[in-house]
Computed example of a mutant assay.
Amino acid sequence: MFLQATMKHNRKLIDAAIELHQEGLISPNTYVLDVDTVRKNAEALAREAKKQNIELLFMTKQIGRNELISKAIVEAGIEKAVAVDPWEALTLHRQGIKIGHVGHLVQIPKYMIRTILEVNPDYVTVFSYENAKNISEIALEIGKKQKIFLRIAESGDFLYDGQKGGFTLKQLYEDIDKLIKLSGVEIAGLTSFPCLLIEDSQAKTTPNVLSMQKAKTFLEEKGFKDLEMNMPSATSTATMKLLRESGATQGEPGHALTGTTPLHVSGEFPEKPAMVYVSEVSHLYEKKAYVFGGGFYPRSRMERALVAPDKNTIKSVDVIENDPSNIDYYGTLDTTDVSIGDTVIYAFRTQIFVTNAHLAVVGSLETSPELLGIYDSTGNKVR
């Protein structure tokens, strides 16, 4: 999906990935991330956010909760992270990353609430009064008042399967007086997901935004002021103006940090591609080449891959996407004009934390390329 943009804007990353694989320094099923390009992307995002008066909280699930990359993002000016789930929050906290938001896509399990509150997140999202009550009770026990976001999920809003839940407007109207009485929490804002979608190379708001706006008006009538409007999904330099115009006070860039939102296929935005996936030709069978898998992603929309015995001999070949109902032991190339052991390079949209891939961080590609570390898909250093 991003192969052409990567060839045009970050060819040195492709060359470095091929060399690392051919030298045996990385194995197939490894994502290679260019920390310097991520840093530049984060700097561009931070500049635009300041211009639009939007606070950014960076997402790390798609880059495997990686410590080196996270610290580069912080250095670039985005100081706090959003954790997709409580386990990510704990990993980032151990790395010394400040947690701005947790609990949105994945609620905090009851017996993890104390542990999560003790890492001092700025905001915790709740889907229900019961969840807010549980958080309030633990917050009081440890002597704090936790700011919470209410997740708005009105009937008819755009919600992905596997991510459904939150307050309908009717439920909010019914529960608000009970929520206000919880002395261990403070309703600090609203959130939903996704608030933006990319269709036909254009960013558009979802119905969720209107639902958030209606909920905000209701809360303001109840006396709430200065509510945060957290509007994640597809946050980038190209979409922040739309977010601000929609009432957002916060965005949560993830794929923009690696130049891999659907808008970035062209490569003609400040954020440049910073990630490739490395595999190796395993075998040939019935006019197809099979490459080692484990890190493919069902929504990747791959079309082409590069095959190379070395960085000076590269060919582009067609990809046959895997059936997402099967385990990706191998990927498939629609060719036999390759050799076993050749390096294979992909560039696609992914979520590393749900794969069993490794992640190699590289730097100084413009001068003297350096392998800075190899990590597993959930942020642990391998070597």
Results as ranks from 00 to 15, higher is better:
32 V>L: 15
148 I>N: 09
339 S>I: 10
257 L>I: 13
322 N>G: 01
21 H>Q: 13
13 L>K: 06
284 L>C: 07
359 L>K: 15
46 A>V: 05
302 M>G: 11
111 Y>D: 10
285 Y>M: 05
173 Y>V: 11
24 G>I: 13
197 L>G: 02
322 N>V: 00
165 G>H: 11
104 H>G: 08
140 L>P: 07
53 N>Y: 09
98 K>R: 14
65 R>C: 11
183 S>P: 02
91 T>E: 11
83 A>D: 03
14 I>D: 08
223 G>I: 02
307 V>R: 12
237 T>I: 08
74 V>W: 01
317 V>W: 07
179 L>M: 13
157 D>H: 06
47 R>Y: 05
223 G>R: 02
53 N>G: 06
43 E>N: 01
229 M>R: 07
333 L>M: 11
8 K>H: 10
364 S>L: 04
103 G>E: 15
310 D>W: 09
291 V>Q: 04
202 Q>R: 10
139 A>E: 10
86 P>W: 06
353 F>A: 12
173 Y>H: 15
96 G>R: 01
152 I>D: 00
169 L>Y: 15
22 Q>K: 13
47 R>W: 03
108 I>H: 09
369 P>C: 15
304 R>V: 05
332 T>P: 01
285 Y>F: 09
335 T>E: 00
377 S>I: 04
36 D>Q: 08
276 V>W: 14
72 A>R: 03
14 I>V: 09
77 G>L: 12
164 K>G: 00
380 N>W: 12
120 N>H: 00
162 G>E: 02
57 L>Q: 05
296 F>H: 00
27 S>D: 14
89 A>K: 04
334 D>C: 05
339 S>N: 14
269 F>D: 05
353 F>I: 06
329 Y>W: 05
163 Q>P: 00
6 T>Y: 06
6 T>C: 08
274 A>C: 15
198 I>P: 02
348 F>P: 07
137 E>H: 01
367 T>W: 15
195 C>V: 03
363 G>C: 08
110 K>R: 15
207 P>R: 03
308 A>N: 00
10 N>F: 13
113 I>H: 10
124 V>S: 08
381 K>M: 09
104 H>C: 06
101 H>M: 15
345 I>P: 02
340 I>S: 03
166 G>H: 07
377 S>M: 10
251 G>V: 03
1 M>I: 07
168 T>Q: 07
26 I>K: 02
190 L>G: 00
115 T>I: 11
237 T>S: 13
133 K>W: 09
133 K>G: 03
134 N>T: 14
354 V>E: 12
